[in-house]
């Protein structure tokens, strides 16, 4: 197995405890921080005969919040689900081109799909806790990837619940069903669950659209905090949200990437007419 040219710092500090996840951690901290480890090259995606994604070329900057914006049905969510190949289960799917994660093509036959997915935490539109207790929700992924030590599991659960600010709220009822939490808490739990398997990316598909404003704000703050350690890709409907937290923005329209660039650039000085119209609210 190849070594990563880059490991984010928090992972490096945990490396000892998490050796079961990566036996070959190669701590080259500080090397090429602004490099992109997620690259999309000439991606075309068809569902049955419909051409959903058209010739997409992208580089997602590392350790930044990237927002994908665009009107409904423009292929944002599809693109996001292509990153971890959750789209595979769709009927009649066909793709061309490549997506490189750490220089590995995720469409390559030799690439193991579960390894790709482990690198990509997913936060879906509606929170979707697993049908088990709060504790097991977080421990599930770690157990699956080989961690059996009870003490370590306890530690991970606590750590991740603290990371999403849920620990104080649930520490006395870790073994209650996760479905009993409020919807905002559930979404944070889902985030913690994703973080527990040590991803490099966080994919969020309109992750705040089902939440109340306060919970929603909570999640946004978390994203800003987490971008120190993770690359965050966010599909969003609300331009305000993108304005608040995006470092990098991708505007999509009818399956094409119209414009991509820093948030500053896109919001203040869009190069494309379509982008400008969309930002002005001409269509949505």
């Amino acid at each position: 197995m190849k070594s990563y040219p880059y490991q984010n710092p928090s992972r490096a500090t945990w490396a000892e405890d998490y050796s079961f996840l990566n036996n070959d951690i190669n701590n080259d901290e500080g090397l090429a921080f602004n490099k992109s480890y997620l690259k999309v090259k000439d991606l075309n995606l068809y569902i049955h005969k419909a051409h959903i994604l058209k010739n997409v070329n992208l580089e997602i900057p590392d350790k930044k919040v990237t927002c994908i914006i665009g009107p409904s049905g423009c292929g944002k969510s599809t693109l996001l689900k292509t990153f971890n190949r959750l789209i595979d289960d769709t009927e009649g799917i066909k793709y061309e081109g490549s997506i490189l994660v750490d220089d590995t093509d995720i469409f390559d036959k030799k690439t193991e799909i579960t390894d790709i997915r482990k690198k990509m935490g997913l936060l879906s539109q509606r929170p979707c806790p697993l049908p088990m207790s709060i504790y097991d929700n977080i421990a599930f992924g770690c157990k699956m990837h080989g961690e059996r030590n009870r003490k370590k599991l306890n530690q991970i659960v606590e750590e991740q619940l603290k990371a999403v600010g849920l620990w104080e709220e649930v520490k006395n009822r870790l073994h209650a069903p996760a479905s009993k939490l409020s919807i905002g808490q559930q979404q944070r739990l889902c985030l913690a669950r994703g973080l527990a398997v040590e991803p490099e990316f966080i994919l969020a598909d309109e992750a705040t659209s089902a939440l109340d404003p306060i919970s929603s704000k909570h999640i946004e703050e978390l994203f800003v905090k987490l971008k120190q350690d993770y690359t965050i890709i966010l599909v969003t409907h609300t331009l305000r949200q993108a304005l608040r937290i995006a470092d990098h923005v991708i505007f999509m329209y009818l399956g094409e990437v119209i414009e991509a660039g820093s948030a500053d650039e896109i919001f203040n000085n869009p190069k494309q007419e379509l982008t400008r119209k969309y930002l002005e609210g001409a269509f949505s």
């Binding site: 689900k81 959750l86 390894d115 482990k118 997913l122 539109q125 697993l130 049908p131 699956m144």
Partner: peptide, 12 residues
């Protein structure tokens, strides 16, 4: 969503 969330954790 439930299956997707589980796959997203890297489950077979």
């Amino acid at each position: 969503d439930l299956l997707d969330s589980t796959y997203a954790l890297g489950a077979t």
